[in-house]
Write a protein that binds this DNA or RNA. Structure first.
Lengths: 327, 327
DNA sequence: CTGAAAGCGCTTACAG
DNA sequence: CTGAAAGCGCTTACAG
């Protein structure tokens, strides 16, 4: 049905070898021949068969990207960056969304691996114990989680979190709340610890709540608990939860930024648009995606043999949801 | 490197044919033989090579999904549903995001088509004139746009829009604003017209604004224009724009639902969480995705020859952002 | 029920 | 610079 290399060769009165070279390795062919081949292939509407090519060269040029939830605004920038970079390098990306079901992660990763040359796994939700099984699907690069002996791109929440706590301390807050993300989240543990150690250093008290799912609804729920306690400021695991907190506070007539301060994490588009605008920690998702692809391609072509974890920094973006502690 | 069918065959003392059948068409093989093959294949860690299979059977079992912007909350439910359905049918989906650049759409669709058996194109942004070129990439099913002679799943905003206008009329509003989405959006045209005709019927005046990009920022901008006019209620092209309007109104001290009424479209997660909660039009994105996959598979296996457009309905979800017109 | 053989559509050493 | 041939790893009529 579709026109093949052989059809073009026959029409051009040349061998398949020559047609193949003319199309994919032009230097190896006489200029006139090349032109002729290109013209005829064009006229015939020849489209190379990727599958056959893959079988011959031993790779698919497909890379897999596993994400916990594409509806979570943290991931689209990563996804877009991965796609853009992959595309620039002649690769196509296949995305699998595990819908925040950690139990499906390994199986989905295995399936994905079968069809692709390698994997980028963003924010893996699997327990530490089972992480090795994901690693075995090599080549794989992890984003947003440190995995022993594996390539990883780590977004270090530490700096941003420390800045956030310092910011609140400077505003006079003495007791701050932290709304935990999911237990399975490695970032959450990292954030908790950064908050804890900075708070200790500055003599602040941290009250913990959660764990919560990274959803607006969680924040709505958490807001009421928070108001029953003594914190005058709160840092949420992510912007979605922070936005939920603000929505509920507003609903209860409490002024965010005046009566209570709120900080999120992700610097998602909504954070600059909410009312009041949300103080948050900028996380370089796009950069992480780009770097992850480069790292994977390096693994694939053997340029990289012993991958070092790559660390990206975060920083606080101060907006209107934080203000001086009420007296 | 990887173990092949032939390796398993050699280890089992059988032919490749038998191993192949034992693994993919068990009924055609003696029970004892099958068990042996399955056991040995398991022990050897045999993973069938998809590429070789695809080349042989003439299909990739990959389907392409083209979306304007995965960061737009309208699309994740569609994407998830497409993936879920495709996966249930043994297909894998490759997503391409055109980042709201209509100019890239055709090219990306072509690339995607080369690697897949067929396409689902969500909310195509291409002009009517060039739509035929997308159709030619058959088999393709369009979601959220009616395309002559092509398979399509249409989300009919008409009902929901009519309900929205009736709702506002019942609340006493006489002048309503409509914030247009992008000119390239087919849905926008459909929504404009539905609003216009219902408003005519009920004797309301419609003031139009825009076009606006489907982003929160657009709503922030639009809010000020709106306040300078006479509308007491506004319907936005989508929830993002509506949320932006509300954020800006709140910022200016205007009470949404009391001083002015706001209606969005999409019923995205944020709409139920915003303050006040947003009256919006529910759009069956997930259902559209599922139906689109079924339709594409039907086209692929020849079950469907002359596709009829499939129409899905929308409905108004009343929340707190709409209220009686101020006197 | 099982096997030998052909074929899917490419790429690429190897000769000439 | 060009061509004949082998091979990538499967599936599937066709025989037996």
């Amino acid at each position: 049905m579709a026109v093949t290399l052989a059809d073009v060769a026959a029409a051009a009165g040349l061998s398949g070898s020559t047609v193949s070279r003319a199309l994919s390795d032009p230097d190896k062919v006489n200029a006139a021949t090349r032109e002729k081949v290109v013209r005829i292939a064009g006229e015939m509407g020849y489209v190379p068969n990727h599958t056959a090519r893959s079988l011959t060269i031993g790779r698919t040029d497909l890379i897999g990207l596993l994400v916990p939830d594409i509806a979570n605004p943290f991931f689209p920038p990563i996804i877009k960056a991965v796609q853009a970079r992959a595309s620039a390098k002649g690769r196509t990306v296949v995305i699998a969304d595990i819908d925040e079901r950690p139990g499906d992660e390994l199986e989905r990763a295995r399936q994905l691996r079968k069809r692709t040359d390698g994997l980028v796994i963003a924010s893996p939700r699997t327990t530490d114990a089972r992480l090795a099984e994901l690693s075995e699907l090599a080549p794989v690069v992890f984003v947003n989680r440190e995995v022993p002996d594996a390539a990883s791109v780590i977004i270090d929440s530490g700096d941003g979190m420390a800045q956030a706590v310092e910011h609140l301390a400077a505003l006079g807050h003495r007791v701050i709340g932290y709304l935990n993300g999911p237990r399975r989240s490695w970032s959450n543990e990292q954030r908790r610890q950064a908050i804890g150690s900075t708070a200790d250093r500055l003599g602040l008290t941290v009250l913990e709540y959660g764990p919560y799912e990274p959803q607006v609804q969680s924040g709505v729920h958490a807001a009421d608990l928070l108001l029953a306690g003594e914190a005058t400021a709160v840092i949420a695991y992510d912007d979605l939860i922070a936005l939920g907190v603000m929505a509920r506070l507003t609903e209860r007539g409490i002024r965010t930024g005046t009566d209570i301060s709120v900080i999120g994490v992700d610097d998602s588009p909504m954070s600059a648009m909410a009312y009041p605008t949300l103080t948050t920690i900028h996380v370089p998702g796009a950069e992480a995606g780009t770097v992850a692809v480069d790292s994977l391609l390096g693994l694939l072509d053997g340029t990289i043999e012993h991958p070092e974890p790559i660390r990206l920094e975060t920083r606080l973006v101060v907006r209107s949801s934080t203000g001086p502690a009420p007296r």
